[in-house]
Design a protein around this nucleic acid. Structure first.
Lengths: 360, 360
DNA sequence: CTGTTAGCGCATTCAA
DNA sequence: TTGAATGCGCTAACAG
């Protein structure tokens, strides 16, 4: 701890290095940042004495302060980190972001968001060149805080913010296809397994009141899409039970489905807002001795990797999970972040979890 | 873009804020960092004018330079980011790290490592308080570069570095249990589906030569563990085919198993160094019309979440994936990172993928 | 190709 | 409680 290499006590700045080599600070700096600005010979000598001296290279903080660039982008989830990392769609987004970051040699800073205070502090203190906001709800207090930093921002699957570019998917069309598919198969008794409507978690069938105040944009749009398909068939979304399950958890979806199937008019078709929910519904069905799709049809959403391998394979709405990340990172890392929005396509993938309504 | 809030043109430093309020820089700074150092009234006034001015709070880079602390930790994978994010074990580690980071309000910086040059640059430029090194191979050039930064470091599942604390699991004991289990079931014709031995990717049965030079510590230890169990039964690891599959990919494992089963003396038991590999082996078996475990027994490693739900459920070696991350982050974030090593336990979980050797 | 000059924006002494 | 001075370590101009 106190005995170190040879000629090194506290020598750790560019100045010390320059002095040791007998050149100016600029030259030493250039040895690291502008290799073409000095002879290879000199550069080699500088780098070698740096090593001998134990000089760790230009101090990143000082360099950032000076250049105003950090070389990393910040990622803010609507959920806490461990929670987000439990969710396949967040992971896929991360993968997309990571792909671009690798290419651009940029770091990806995951910001802690335990509570509003923590998030605020993280946003203020983050050494980043821009922010990606993922799944932030309407009215989230961190959005204005991010805006205050006056850095480039791209939102993904979030509330839309005036003047901020955004990446999202066509939730409405996807949901509409899903519902239309079930309706065409003759299903008339439907139920919806819904992602969070509001910031405050809730498990249970949603009241009219709560339906009218949705904080999460994708949830709102999907509900709207389901409703549009129903309207075309003369059905009314308001008569269809919407069961809210907190946090994309299979377990909640299983219990929800159990409750729905135990009701007076059990559904024959389930519109799940995520593949996790769909799998939860499967579990409930199998628990009751019901077969999918013979007794119950289920349409998922997302098309996570598991969806295709599950048995029965999920009929689901595919969304380009990874591409969302790629698009967001590329948009953010552009020289001049364009103030546009991109809506990526969704499309129904028919597999094995849907079939004709019983009795048809 | 050029028309902003009311009284704000280029006013963005603590100085400007102080001037606007009519106090000194110190006081303005304290308003943000030491709330108890000034009257609530004054603090309120400062914060309010900060907002009105569009002052985004103390510049993070300047603050870091001054304090020497960044509030985040850097994570360096042995693989590229998108690749690591495809791997359940890396995700689990991330989850563990994230849990601690949330609690300590620390950021988690994912460093790009596309190639050695990129990794070197990322390590030098990272504004972090310490590094976590995950799955770094023996002889990796980034290790010395990290050490040069003279910041706290914790390695996880990596080559052991003199004086650097490390977290790992008891790979040897776990592998030994796995092999002993198969041997007790009467299996004598075994084969190993191995993780990478060396940095250079390789797909195929490994030569004696290659076996003697293993860059990845967990791989080496697991092989050793398999060997120890065999020795107890009078078998010789050197006679058992070790099929190296790059990058924990199911697909490689499937093809490897196909090749192994097509050989002269097809194995009846497969020791897979990961659950992904085990699943790949299942696919190969089912492709050949073989049943697991009737015709082929497979032991995995990791006990990823999928392992228990898969059919047949995997017999596998459980390792505390998330806890590794928790332990690593806690060790790193301690006031004085202790220079100790922790080896977490592994344990065989018997499920459905193993059974008596055929003909017993 | 090399050196000189001048801050980047802040937190922290210390004195008032 | 508050304010004045100091430098954290570096890079970008520019002049040689």
């Amino acid at each position: 701890m106190h005995a170190d290499e040879k000629p090194c006590e506290r020598a750790r700045t560019l100045d010390d290095l320059a002095k040791a080599v007998g050149v100016s600070r600029t030259t030493a700096s250039n040895a690291f940042n502008r290799p073409e600005q000095l002879s290879a010979e000199l550069r080699g000598r500088i780098l070698r004495t740096a090593e001998a001296l134990g000089y760790p290279g230009p101090n990143p903080m000082a360099r950032m302060l000076r250049t105003g660039r950090t070389g990393s982008i910040g990622l803010l989830f609507g959920d806490t980190l461990p929670y987000a990392l439990d969710d396949d769609t967040s992971i896929a987004l991360l993968k997309g972001l990571a792909r671009v970051c690798e290419k651009r040699r940029s770091g990806l800073l995951l910001l802690p968001v335990m509570d509003d205070a923590a998030a605020a502090q993280a946003v203020r203190a983050a050494a980043v060149d821009g922010f990606i906001l993922y799944c932030l709800p309407d009215g989230s207090p961190v959005v204005p805080q991010v805006l205050e930093r006056r850095l480039p921002v791209v939102t993904v699957d979030s509330v839309s913010v005036e003047g901020v570019p955004s990446i999202s998917i066509d939730d409405l069309a996807g949901a509409q296809q899903a519902a239309a598919h079930l309706l065409e198969l003759g299903h008339r008794r439907l139920a919806i397994l819904s992602l969070d409507l509001q910031t405050e978690e809730h498990f249970g069938v949603v009241t009219r009141q709560r339906r009218s105040e949705i904080h999460y944009r994708p949830t709102a749009l999907r509900l709207e899409g389901y409703g549009a398909a129903m309207r075309e068939k003369g059905l009314d979304l308001r008569r269809v039970p919407v069961f809210e399950c907190p946090g994309n958890s299979e377990e909640h979806a299983r219990r929800a489905t159990l409750e729905l199937l135990a009701g007076r008019t059990p559904p024959t078709g389930i519109l799940a807002m995520s593949d996790r929910f769909a799998i939860g519904a499967f579990q409930a069905a199998s628990q009751l001795g019901l077969q999918v799709p013979r007794d119950l049809s289920v349409v998922g959403f997302d098309d996570i990797p598991l969806a295709a391998r599950f048995r029965p394979a999920l009929t689901t709405v595919r969304q380009p999970l990874v591409e969302k990340g790629v698009a967001a990172a590329e948009m953010l890392l552009k020289k001049r972040t364009p103030a546009i929005s991109r809506v990526l396509e969704t499309r129904l993938i028919q597999r094995e979890s849907t079939g004709p309504a019983p009795g048809r």
